[in-house]
């Protein structure tokens, strides 16, 4: 049987999520044995033509050129998986969506007319149909391997949508919010990191984006009780998954009422 072709695509991002594949040091050669790595420029000069059975897409759409390129990627891909917060929610660069991009450009570049950029940074799913979204900033490489495996065996990936709180309990970490009064986004953030930050005595900062049925109003009232001011709350919700609908709505509401 011919091995399925894998392609890895990059849009606006830090490279960290595709690096997760190269960081799977123990599994990399096995993956390369199970699929044909047909288009992965970070790893290989060789580019084989599509169609590709599995495309992993990193990064968000921020330029007119990329908005066209993602259409091409979609048309060449049978199964398209977005990896990481940039691809699934627009990433940290989606902070431009609340700003004047012309002003941003002027503050970074001496000759703004050289820069060709959109006013927004948006998720891949805002532009094309996405078959599966893998969250995280960065993604968890175990979850990435699960997605590749599930694809190979023709089943749905087993990626939980519950919150970081579940992982904290499982890890046996004392709740930093209840015990220490440390503000934490764990109750509204999707699991996947292994509840890292609370294990290091800091609050979760939401890098996996909103959990299933996240109750933002309940968390916000609890954080206010801990005397977190609204400006700080807005900043806390506006990081790597700022434009994920649940986080975005909550931060917009805080700005209006606050």
């Amino acid at each position: 049987m011919r091995k399925p072709k894998l392609a890895v695509w990059k849009f606006a991002s830090c490279d960290g999520c595709q690096l997760s594949l190269l960081d799977a040091e123990d599994e990399l050669l096995a993956v390369a044995g199970a699929v044909e790595i047909a288009n992965f420029p970070e790893a290989s000069r060789e580019v084989l033509p599509g169609p590709y059975q599995l495309s992993l897409v990193e990064g968000s759409i921020t330029t007119p050129h990329d908005a066209e390129r993602i259409q091409q990627v979609r048309s060449e891909s049978e199964f398209l998986v977005t990896i990481g917060a940039c691809a699934t929610a627009g990433g940290i660069q989606a902070l431009r969506n609340w700003a004047d991009v012309a002003e941003f450009t002027r503050s970074v570049y001496a000759t703004p007319e050289f820069i060709d950029t959109l006013d927004t940074s948006t998720a891949i799913a805002d532009h094309v149909t996405v078959d599966f979204e893998l969250r995280g900033c960065p993604i968890n490489k175990g979850q990435l391997l699960e997605v590749v495996n599930a694809f190979l065996y023709g089943r749905r990936p087993d990626i939980p949508g519950y919150s970081v709180c579940i992982e904290c309990k499982r890890r046996g970490t004392t709740c930093v919010m209840v015990a220490d009064g440390t503000p934490c986004l764990g109750p509204v953030t999707q699991a996947g990191c292994g509840a890292l930050c609370p294990a290091y005595h800091r609050g979760c900062y939401g890098c996996f984006g909103p959990a299933e049925s996240a109750n933002l109003p309940a968390l916000i009232s609890e954080l206010r009780r801990l005397e977190v001011d609204d400006a700080t709350l807005v900043r806390a919700l506006r990081t790597y998954n700022a434009y994920a609908p649940e986080f975005r709505a909550a931060s917009d509401e805080l700005e209006v009422t606050g």
């Binding site: 849009f11 606006a12 921020t62 330029t63 990329d66 990433g91 940290i92 660069q93 902070l95 431009r96 700003a99 991009v101 002003e103 941003f104 450009t105 503050s107 970074v108 570049y109 820069i115 950029t117 700080t232 900043r235």
Partner: peptide, 14 residues
């Protein structure tokens, strides 16, 4: 590489 404007959106952060 598409510009990501870190220096701009760092303004106002803690």
């Amino acid at each position: 590489e598409p510009p990501r404007f870190f220096e701009a959106f760092l303004q106002g952060r803690h």
